[in-house]
Amino acid sequence: MNIFRLTGDLAHLIAIIILLHKIWKSRSCAGISGKSQVLFALVYTTRYLDLVTSYVSIYNTFMKFVFLATSYATIYLIYVKFKATYDHNHDTFRIEFLILPSLALALLINHYFNFLEVLWTFSIYLESVAILPQLFMVSKTGEAESITSHYLFALGSYRALYILNWIYRYATEGHYDLIAIVAGVVQTVLYCDFFYLYITKVLKGKKLQLPA
């Protein structure tokens, strides 16, 4: 554990809390892509199957439970409790175009060919693109509420901080995982355009609005 990994995990946790709090407080999931949330639940489910096979630390186990539980709670809020407020007309990204290539790539490029390892690899590939339905939704409506922008910023920062963590780990332990690194870089790059808008607009008190 190092400071980059810890702040990365905290950014991830904060992102989830912002999202749940926003939906709960406003009693609405307007502007939130249910499809991205379904993909995240799939990511955590396939990655954390190792909860039963390998123990790392109480911290890891606790965080895995939190990520799993909150991802399903989010889906429940969007698709059941506040279903009426779900903006499905704008949430039209075809998630099979992300799931199937991620699965195919995981079958082809992995560290080891067994069930758990392929699913872990799939979760890494899928996570890198899971935000696309949400970004697509923002681009389709041309704007995002500030709170949704804060959520996206926290969620994007998490993998960016993990990249610093990987550099640090390589320098100090010689440890590296190419699959996680390449996917993590792709994931972070996808947020770059958003980061730019966030810093130049949202932080200056303006609404995140895309140029027409």
Partner: peptide
């Protein structure tokens, strides 16, 4: 490197 290795990150 030895595989399968345990994944120690989240």
């Amino acid at each position: 490197k030895r595989f399968p290795m345990p994944h120690d990150e989240l």
